[in-house]
């Protein structure tokens, strides 16, 4: 595969629309394709997804490959790997990008090795090296303590990209793009896993990813009762409650509100970190916040290095007093 050209984005679809990460990837892909003076394509895989092609074009794709098949209604590894392999062999992209999502991180390694190449997961920056023209893939390592820049000589060069690391373009519905329909060519017998059930753990109120204020608790909260207090505070600000890993691992809160390297990545206006020490693995999920407010009993805690404002002390005393004063100032 010496004639690989172009940048291809695996564009995930959620509720009949491009997922936010897909728009961000198209924005990033547009820039990379521009530097290479090559084409940007989108790859839509699913059932009933053909209608999303126009959206992919509006967000920057020159060409949209559509693989629409009932067998692709839900994500299953073997089916999606087979389709990616087929389209990638047909289109021969130089670069193939996916989102660092529960689908992308399952799909990308297996697809990469099927194609005889490699992938770097969870990148936060992508650039074209000026001299070698290789894709420079920057990724946090050692739980966020360090960053590494990787390259690969095999093609296509593959990477998954973390949510909110890239910016989407303003959609332009007047943009013109080509749509290429590809037959899935799937044999149901090759799909070795069975999706029995999709369980959505509803979180009341504002979603973490959309919240402009997040009140987040750590190990020091001590149990589920403490999180009730954080919920009250979050409600006052019309915000959401998050957590570092220990409260989730201990079952105090649902795992779906975990923020960090192995959880969600958030970037709210205000992130109030309560009794969170600030491990690198947690910071990996919240360091994009515009303003971090740290409340911790340990003045040496790492979270204060990231915070704009902080109070040193016992959260059990600080939170009620802070909430009362905030309520008064907000006139509630």
């Amino acid at each position: 595969m010496t004639d690989n050209k172009g940048v291809m984005i695996f564009t995930e679809v959620v509720d009949g629309k491009l997922a936010p990460i897909a728009r961000e990837l198209l924005g990033c892909g547009r820039k990379l394709a521009g530097e290479l003076k090559e084409e940007l394509s989108a790859l839509l895989i699913g059932s009933g997804v053909a209608g999303v092609a126009a959206e992919a074009t509006a967000y920057g794709a020159d060409k949209v490959y559509v693989v629409d098949n009932e067998l692709l209604k839900d994500y299953r590894t073997d089916a999606f790997v087979g389709v990616i392999e087929k389209v990638a062999r047909q289109a021969n992209p130089r670069i193939l990008l996916l989102g660092q999502t529960s689908t992308g991180n399952d799909l990308a390694p297996r697809a990469a090795f099927r194609l005889g190449t490699a992938v770097t997961l969870d990148c936060v920056a992508l650039e074209i090296d000026a001299s070698s023209k290789l894709l420079l893939q920057t990724k946090p390592v050692y739980g966020g303590n360090a960053r590494a820049i990787f390259t690969m000589d095999t093609l296509p060069q593959m990477a998954t990209v973390r949510a909110k690391a890239m910016s989407a373009l303003t959609p332009d519905s007047a943009r013109k793009g080509e749509v290429v329909t590809v037959d899935a060519g799937l044999d149901a017998a090759t799909i070795k896993t069975n999706l029995l059930q999709k369980v959505v753990q509803e979180v009341e109120g504002v979603k973490l990813e959309d919240a402009s204020v997040i009140v987040s608790g750590g190990r020091g909260i001590g149990g589920p009762e403490g999180f009730k207090e954080l919920e009250e505070l979050a409600k006052l600000f019309k915000g959401a409650v998050g957590a570092s890993r220990p409260p989730c691992d201990n079952g105090w809160v649902p795992t779906s509100i975990q923020i960090g390297l192995t959880g969600k990545v958030v970037s709210p206006e205000v992130y109030i970190a309560v009794a969170i020490s600030g491990s690198s693995q947690h910071l990996a999920g919240c360091s994009g916040s515009k303003n971090i407010i740290a409340i911790n009993r340990d003045a040496e805690a790492n979270i204060f290095k990231e915070a704009r404002f902080g109070v040193v002390g016992d959260w059990k005393k600080i939170i009620p007093a802070f909430q009362a004063k905030a309520k008064e100032l907000l006139g509630k």
Binding site: T120, V141, A146, R147, A148, I149, T151, D153, A294, K305
Partner: peptide, 16 residues
């Protein structure tokens, strides 16, 4: 297949 070009520590500002 994957080559590491650089390894570095991001700078934290620490202006709390």
């Amino acid at each position: 297949r994957v080559k590491m070009q650089k390894l570095f520590q991001p700078v934290r500002e620490g202006k709390c």
